[in-house]
Design a protein around this nucleic acid. Structure first.
Lengths: 132, 132
DNA sequence: CCTTGCCTTGACGCCGACGTCAAGGATTAC
DNA sequence: GTAATCCTTGACGTCGGCGTCAAGGCAAGG
């Protein structure tokens, strides 16, 4: 299949697929006319990349999975390097979530405090208490 | 005080302060020689911005707080517009945390599954079970 | 007078993952 | 034959928040 069809079937764009090729993630055979020529295996590669990207993986982090598939393994995560990326990502997510929870708590506290002050003293515009 | 001192006292750089000025967040008076001239109120503005930035607020989201302070209010969050930003940020954080928790769970599940397969069947390299 | 260290503006660089446009060749539909 | 739709490569644009460099002005100490 050609690049347009692969893009449609993978739910992405031709620009994205060419970008992946430029990054060395998706090498393409060429037809005699120079057109890129893909098969169903390439579709699997793209789907693997897209799935991980949707999870928030950076493109480089998908490389072990892609190479694992290209090496003939049944799944992208059938290789040690992929598992290492999984573990790092889980740790990264745990740390990030904890940080965000902390920030959320602090912002929530500030919000509550500011709302309380708002309910108590409705906007002191002037220290002499002008009526305007 | 001049820009270098303000930067030091605020724990940031002169480049950052000039950037804030260019964005209209930190207008600066000028001395006769053209040097920017700041006072302690400006330090408060910068500290307000940095605090919110550390929380993950975008620069534009700090604007209501800064304008609130510049309007003479005691705190950056003494104004309705600031409270609105707080509320939006809390909602945004809640949604983000929930998404990340979902991703974390899925990645954790995939990791566990892949590890289990790894322990069970150690790398089927060839469908004929070659010894190499 | 000269050096050092502050300050000024202007402008390009960076990062990631593409979007978008341009110029031109190939293919397909009618 | 020709128009519409694909494909090719190349290259610049986007976004946020600055970093970094360049060329030059201003002030103070020795």
């Amino acid at each position: 299949m050609r690049i347009g069809e692969l893009a449609r079937r993978a739910g992405t764009t031709t620009r994205t697929l060419r970008y992946y090729e430029a990054r060395g993630l998706l090498p393409a055979r060429r037809a005699v006319n120079g057109y890129r020529d893909y098969d169903d295996g390439d579709l699997l590669l793209v789907q693997q990349i897209r799935t991980l990207r949707d999870f928030g993986f950076e493109l480089e982090e998908t490389r072990p999975f892609v190479e694992c598939l290209r090496a003939g393994h049944p799944a992208g995560d059938s290789c040690p390097a992929s598992l290492a990326v999984y573990r790092a990502k889980v740790a990264e997510l745990d740390a990030l979530i904890e940080r965000l929870r902390s920030v959320r708590a602090q912002v929530g506290t500030e919000l509550a405090r500011a709302e309380a002050e708002f309910a108590a003293g409705p906007v002191p515009r002037c220290q002499f208490g002008g009526t305007e």
